[in-house]
């Protein structure tokens, strides 16, 4: 009796672990794509390349993120300082790093809302629809009239 009770508990724990891992595997994952693959695909979208490609200096300037703290990034931002259109895709080394990068992206959104809150009705409308999300080790910030299309293009890729 003692033996079977112990066996049932162990079997239950193994089954629970199996179900949990299947759930994790199917819910919170993303394909392991290189940033070059992501860039070549996203750069096929005209509304992305209409903006200016940004470098690691801009990443630090706008998001306070060092490029060395990421596995790679894809960053386009409109040249006009009055525009809120931008797309940033970050690849983190781990989920922990991704969550910290997500915090940085959320801070950027908050800062943009503070800047345009007083007078930029159009900008605020776009910022309220901005996509700031994370999946697997990817984090993204997408804001602009076509942010929905960028979002769909990227998420279908990963």
């Amino acid at each position: 009796m003692q033996f079977s009770k112990s066996l049932i508990i162990k079997a239950a724990m193994v089954i629970f672990l199996g179900l949990y891992l299947v759930w994790i595997y199917n819910s919170d994952n993303a394909k392991d794509l290189s940033m070059d693959q992501i860039a070549s695909s996203m750069e096929n979208i005209a509304t992305v390349t209409e903006m200016q490609k940004r470098d690691k200096g801009d990443l630090q300037r706008y998001y306070s993120i060092m490029d060395t703290d990421t596995e790679g990034f894809f960053f386009y931002k409109d040249v006009s300082p009055m525009s809120v259109n931008e797309i940033l895709i970050l690849k983190a080394g781990s989920k922990d790093e991704a969550s910290s990068l997500l915090e940085a992206a959320e801070s950027h959104l908050e800062s943009q809302e503070n800047v345009f809150g007083a007078y930029g009705t159009d900008q605020m409308a776009l910022l309220s629809e901005a996509s700031v999300e994370s999946r697997g080790n990817y984090v993204w910030y997408m804001c602009g009239p076509d942010a929905g299309a960028w979002h769909d293009a990227f998420t279908s890729m990963i």
Binding site: I24, Y25, K31, D32, S94, N137
Partner: peptide, 29 residues
């Protein structure tokens, strides 16, 4: 499962020449 799954598949892909795709599981802290 969390740490070496992708590494193992990448190594097998590298050795056999097969292109085994895999989702990237995030590493629990």
């Amino acid at each position: 499962f969390f740490k070496y799954f992708g590494f193992l598949l990448d190594t097998v892909s590298g050795i056999t020449g097969l292109s085994i795709g895999h989702p990237e599981l995030s590493l629990p802290i």
